[in-house]
Amino acid sequence: MDNHHSAYLLGSASPGLLGSASPGELWDRLFGTQPAPEQWLTIATCALALAAVLPRPLWRLSRNAVTIAHEGGHGLIALLTGRRLEGIRLHSDTSGLTVSRGRPTGLGMVLTAAAGYTAPSLLGLGGAWLLAAGHITLLLWLATALLLAMLVMIRNAYGALTMILTGAAFLLISWLADPGVQAGFAYAAVWFLLLGGVRPVFELQAKRRHGGAPDSDADQLSRLTHVPPAMWLFLFHAVSICSLIGGGRWLLDL
C-alpha cells in the first residue's frame, strides 16, 4: 500500500520437472506450449478470484498478494531506472514499504513511484498474454523466479514468511501438480491480479476523499511532477480497468 517516501521509501511442468529431464527436455517443457483448459475452468477460476477480491473478510487476507505485486513493482522499476534498492517490507495490515536510493527527482523517481498501483494489473495482463499463447509452465516458473528474487530484498519477518509461503505454493504446483491443476492455478492467479489490481485504486480514492493517505503514491507523484493527484488516480484507474478488459478477453479467448 502507501507507506512510501522517496529517498526514498515507496510504498506447466509435469511432476519431476527438475529431477529426470534432460536439458533439452527441460527447455521444451518450459518454453513449449500446453493446451488451454476447458472454458468452464476459465470461468470457474474467474469466479474464484472474484470471491477472493470482493468480500471484505477474504480481501483482508488476499490483499497481501496484491501488496507483493505492488511493492515488487516499485522495486523492479527502481532497479531498472538505476536506483539502489535497499529493501522491501510487507506488513500484516497489507501495507508495504520499498526503500530505494538515488536522485530524489527525475524520470526514474517518477516511474518508480508510479509502478506500485499499476504493477498488479500489468503483471496480470502479461500473465494473460502468456496463458493465451499456451505458456502455462513458463508463467508458473517466471512467477516463482520473481518471487524468489524479491525474497532476497525482504527486510522483515512477516514479509519473509509471506514471500516464502507464496513462493512455495508456486514452486510446488509447478513442480508436482498434474497439468490440469497447474492450468487452474495459473488461470486463478492471473484472474486475481487482474481483478485485485482494480480494488486498491478505488480504496485509495476513497481514503483521499476523506482526508486519509496524505503521502500516497498519487500525492508523491503530484509533488514530483506538479500534476494533480486526481490525474494520477485517473491513470491508475485507466491501467487497471484496461488491463482487466484486455486480459479478460485473452483468457476467455474472445
Rank of each mutant, 00 (worst) to 15 (best):
A44I: 02
R209Y: 11
G126F: 13
S20W: 05
G82F: 11
G11Q: 12
I173Q: 02
S22D: 12
R249D: 01
R103C: 07
H91P: 00
A183W: 01
R249P: 00
D219N: 07
P57H: 13
L147R: 03
T225Y: 10
G102A: 06
S22K: 10
L48G: 13
P15K: 09
L147T: 06
F202D: 11
T98F: 03
W232E: 09
G127T: 09
G102T: 00
A206Q: 14
Y187L: 05
L130I: 00
G19W: 10
P23C: 13
M150N: 08
A213M: 01
I136G: 07
S243C: 09
L221A: 09
E71N: 11
I68S: 02
L85Q: 14
W175V: 02
P37K: 06
T33K: 11
T94L: 04
T33D: 12
I77N: 04
L107S: 12
W129P: 00
G184H: 12
L138I: 01
N3R: 08
G11F: 07
T45S: 14
G106R: 09
R223S: 12
P37C: 10
S216H: 04
K207T: 01
M150H: 03
L41S: 08
Y187M: 01
R101N: 02
M150D: 02
P55F: 13
G75E: 14
T166A: 10
P228R: 14
W27Y: 15
A149E: 09
G247L: 10
A230P: 00
S6W: 00
I245G: 11
L58I: 08
G134M: 08
M231T: 04
W141R: 09
E203M: 08
M163H: 05
G87R: 06
L194Y: 08
F170H: 11
Y158T: 03
T162G: 11
L224E: 04
S12Q: 04
T112M: 11
L142N: 13
A168E: 12
A160L: 10
I88C: 15
G87M: 05
L61H: 08
G167T: 05
L194I: 05
L97F: 06
L125K: 08
R208N: 00
H74R: 12
A230L: 09
A133V: 01
L204P: 03
G87Y: 03
G96R: 03
L130T: 06
P229N: 12
R83K: 15
L235Y: 10
D219F: 00
A157F: 08
L125Q: 08
L151R: 15
S216V: 07
G102N: 04
A115Q: 07
I173T: 11
A218L: 10
I77Q: 03
T162P: 04
R89G: 12
R155L: 03
L252Q: 08
V66A: 09
L107V: 15
L90P: 08
L18N: 05
A230H: 00
